[in-house]
């Protein structure tokens, strides 16, 4: 081994010697494509059961769920904000204006400092999609999903999920991603720990309360009509 070589070169030389695979930057696409994937890709649940499963999972996580028809969304948001007993909220810059009910104090995130976000009692965001099998909400942090810090610091997270955004399995979600997203947060229930005597405690650092409004928009085949929110 060349003593003058950089740590990088040395590492790659050691690795190539160990794998007896001299391929430099060649994408080993052929052998990758032939990897066996016999696990379930697409789920088989009819739309209504898929959504019911998502709601069941959310409730298992102690997330609160409210359902509403599309036209009632702004009113439902306002009602839930009121019911939360909170007043000061933050919103991502891309959130529709008509969702920001005027009776509350809103700060719209245009590079708000963390300390200001922390002062907010709650946050409202959309999401990229949701996965029923594990009850997961996926954020790609588009303009209406908000920067990562926005859905993290406030103690109460109200997430708007449309029924047509619910997929059944995790592989279905990945088949929606034509390009790997730059930022992703998968949320499966509120922050939790079991570090003390395996006792599950909700709410450590992330929001302690997750509230989901499920918008009952028309749903067809498992994923075909899914319209992710506008790209960042």
């Amino acid at each position: 081994m060349n003593a003058a070589a950089s740590p990088r070169q040395q590492a790659l030389e050691r690795i190539r010697a160990a794998t007896r695979n001299p391929a430099a930057s060649v994408e080993p696409a052929g052998s990758y494509a032939s990897l066996r994937r016999d696990y379930i890709g697409h789920g088989a649940l009819p739309a209504e059961s898929r959504i019911a499963l998502m709601l069941e999972r959310l409730r298992e996580y102690d997330a609160e769920v409210t359902e509403c028809p599309p036209e009632a969304l702004p009113a439902t948001i306002a009602a839930q904000l009121l019911a939360s007993g909170r007043h000061a909220f933050v919103a991502p810059a891309g959130l529709p204006q008509e969702w920001l009910a005027p009776q509350f104090a809103w700060k719209v995130d245009r590079d708000l400092p963390a300390a200001e976000i922390e002062q907010a009692e709650g946050v409202v965001t959309t999401c990229f999609c949701a996965i029923a099998d594990s009850g997961t909400i996926v954020l790609h942090h588009s303009a209406s999903e908000g920067r990562r810090v926005l859905s993290l610091l406030p103690d109460w997270h109200l997430c708007i999920l449309r029924a047509s955004q619910v997929v059944e399995t995790l592989p279905e979600y990945f088949s929606l991603c034509k390009q790997p997203p730059r930022l992703v947060t998968w949320i499966s229930g509120p922050s939790a720990t079991a570090d003390i005597e395996m006792t599950r405690i909700k709410g450590v650092h992330g929001p302690r309360f997750l509230h989901v409004i499920l918008v009952r928009d028309p749903v067809a085949d498992p994923t075909s009509n899914l319209q992710p929110d506008q790209a960042r």
């Binding site: 996965i131 099998d133 594990s134 990945f174 992703v184 499966s188 229930g189």
Partner: peptide, 28 residues
Amino acid sequence: YQDLEVMLQVLARSATGERMNPYTSLWT
């Protein structure tokens, strides 16, 4: 990226007995 569809399905189930851990973050 897509390979996470296998890893995330097996990891939390094996580690903590959850369908999915509460938070997973990916950044680039």
